[in-house]
């Protein structure tokens, strides 16, 4: 029992240290750095949620942008001030209950996540019977349908104009608070026997069925929890950027999340956390490539599109040369630190 006490203590210390760090960063650094740090937290949430669905349960889902859109719209509609709602809905006014509904930020984000989870349950009935690449293309289809619908139901989503002036409540405390929640819940889930069951489904569905596992039920659970956190990520992102429109939630967004998961390692929480930070910083850093740079009097013009060229090349390199990503399926744990174990998960 000493080991568990020690680990719990270490976790608490880590959380406290993280909070102190946030306090320091919040006071010291400029808005840009804080913005990037916020993005890291959100991307980590998104990556973890996709990793749960794909990395741990083996369901190749390409519908993350759809979950994010649901979370973003629901939560934004709940925090937009009434006056702002009247100003931005030019083509058609916002329909009644939504035009007056308001919720505190936490509740709004939570409801965004729950709406995405509900959406996940709804689509899981038809799509989760499919396997492999067909599941990918069907979830991608649902995400695209969401986008087209968001473009068209003007009295709710304001159509192509999108929502502007969303209050920017998302600060480091909120984003990292939710991120910590996602890390802790998903990590504990995959380490429990429920997590073992999900991995069993990933490894061999037939054997899982023979061992008494209701495969469909657990797929729905994994898909829904993943959808929930994707919705949370979308809700936080909307408040961070203060503007959303349907064009934002294209396949490209899903691709970015997929990249983080693959780079970190399918089936590794540690990998997703590490790669969430690395890839977000890389993506931000690559923005400079697209802006004009002046070195010693010479101006090198920025190259639009270059960022995604480098980014997609990086994904190709990972898939071709290091398919297991940063971590493979390994996890970091306190035991590793104290005892130097290499294989985590179910360490004694």
């Amino acid at each position: 029992m000493k080991r568990t006490t020690r680990n719990a203590l270490c976790n608490l210390l880590l959380l406290a240290a993280g909070a102190a760090l946030l306090l320091w960063v919040d006071r010291t650094f400029d808005r840009y750095v804080v913005q990037v740090l916020n993005l890291i937290a959100i991307n980590t949430i998104l990556a973890l949620s996709l990793n749960l669905i794909y990395g741990f349960t083996g369901m190749f889902s390409l519908g993350h942008a759809g979950f994010m859109a649901v979370g973003a719209y629901v939560s934004s509609l709940l925090i937009l001030p009434q006056a702002q709602k009247q100003t931005i809905y030019i083509l058609k006014p916002l329909i009644w209950p939504l035009s007056v509904l308001q919720a505190p930020f936490f509740v709004a984000v939570l409801l965004g996540g729950l709406a995405a989870a509900l959406f996940a349950i709804l689509i899981s009935v038809p799509v989760l019977r499919l396997g492999g690449d067909y599941l990918g293309i069907a979830t991608l289809g649902f995400a695209e349908i969401i986008r087209v619908v968001a473009n068209n139901i003007v009295p709710i989503t304001n159509g192509a104009l999108g929502l502007k002036g969303i209050p920017s409540y998302a600060n480091l405390w909120w984003t990292y608070g939710w991120c910590a929640l996602a890390v802790i819940f998903i990590a504990r889930l995959v380490q429990s026997n429920t997590g073992n069951v999900l991995k069993a489904i990933r490894d061999d569905e037939v054997a899982a069925k023979a061992m008494g596992i209701d495969v469909f039920k657990y797929k729905v659970i994994s898909f829904t929890v993943g959808g929930f956190f994707a919705g949370i990520g979308g809700a936080l992102l909307a408040s961070l950027l203060t503007t959303i429109d349907p064009k934002m939630f294209t396949f490209m967004l899903t691709f970015n999340v997929l990249m983080i998961v693959v780079a970190g390692g399918l089936g590794s929480i540690t990998g997703s956390v590490l790669s969430g930070a690395v890839i977000t910083v890389l993506l931000e850093w690559l923005r400079f490539v697209e802006n004009p740079v002046t070195i010693g009097g010479f101006t090198i013009p920025g190259v639009p599109g270059m960022r995604m060229v480098v980014f997609s090349l990086a994904l190709l390199c990972i898939i071709l040369f290091r398919r297991e990503g940063i971590m493979g399926m390994r996890e970091w744990s306190w035991d590793m630190l104290f005892r130097g174990r290499t294989r985590g998960g179910e360490a004694r």
Binding site: T194, V197, A200, D203, D204, G212, E346
Partner: peptide
């Protein structure tokens, strides 16, 4: 379940 440990394999069935 080949990516899992021996113990995990048994626990999965105990689920």
């Amino acid at each position: 379940f080949k990516n899992e440990t021996v113990l995990q394999n048994v626990m999965i069935a105990g689920h």
